[in-house]
């Protein structure tokens, strides 16, 4: 699905990491963990072509990201659900319009039945927020809305950056359940988090692999965290 081959990245100063080779396999469930500032967000951006590696190659769905045309990158992103750490919305549109925006963009609004949308809104606990504007949402509500927006297209891959950063434990488990459900449908999921209890909770539900990011690079962590 996503392959990193001897990837290095630097924002201009020192390298955040170098010589990272990771293969995210189809249908697997990954956690990406590491201390703050280690480069989790950077890693995710490399995975969806938000950043291009300064060395090495990233392949998504078998295609080298750096050699894709702009429109091809757009098509690639339609198959990847992304939850950014600093979630952004179209602030002038209601929450529900923002959530169905990926469908609007790819002209597939008709694919979604109203009950499905209601289910999804209910699942992320935003039913009574649907007609409001994004700026009226709390931090946790924004993350839930972003997760709903990321999964509405039923993407092949979900990349979520701290999706449970601002929500309570109950809601965290609910969001996790949504993601494990998707994984069970064969989707690849990658969650960046430093919430170890979330990882432990997940391990009870799915076979999750943990990628640990550190100064030395990105490695699969052992069984015990």
């Amino acid at each position: 699905m996503i392959e990193l081959d001897a990837v290095a990245y630097s924002y201009g100063g020192g390298e955040i990491f170098s010589d990272v080779s990771v293969n995210l396999e189809q249908g697997s469930f990954y956690f990406l963990t590491g201390p703050s500032g280690a480069g989790k967000t950077t890693f995710l951006k490399l995975c969806y072509g938000g950043l291009l590696p300064t060395a090495g190659h990233v392949r998504v769905f078998g295609a080298k990201v750096c050699s894709l045309e702009r429109d091809q990158v757009a098509m690639m992103r339609r198959k990847i659900g992304i939850v950014q750490q600093d979630v952004q919305f179209l602030d002038h549109l209601p929450v529900s319009d923002n959530i169905v925006l990926p469908l609007t963009i790819s002209d597939r609004n008709s694919d979604l039945a109203a009950p499905d949308l209601d289910d999804l809104m209910n699942w992320v606990g935003l039913t009574d927020r649907a007609r409001g504007l994004p700026e009226e949402l709390s931090g946790g509500e924004r993350q839930r809305a972003a997760l709903a927006r990321a999964v509405i297209m039923s993407p092949d891959i979900v990349l979520a950056d701290e999706p449970t950063g601002n929500v309570d434990w109950e809601m965290s488990k609910r969001l996790l359940y949504l993601l494990t459900e998707l994984n069970q449908m064969g989707k690849t999921v990658l969650i960046a988090t430093h919430d170890l209890s979330l990882i432990r909770a997940a391990k009870a539900q799915v076979q999750a692999r943990v990628l640990r990011i550190s100064k030395r690079g990105v490695h699969l962590a052992g069984a015990n965290l």
Partner: peptide
């Protein structure tokens, strides 16, 4: 700029 960013992230083409 934020609108353009969001649209890009969600897979909007330039012509869209």
């Amino acid at each position: 700029a934020q609108v353009v960013n969001v649209l890009r992230l969600l897979g909007a083409t330039d012509s869209y």
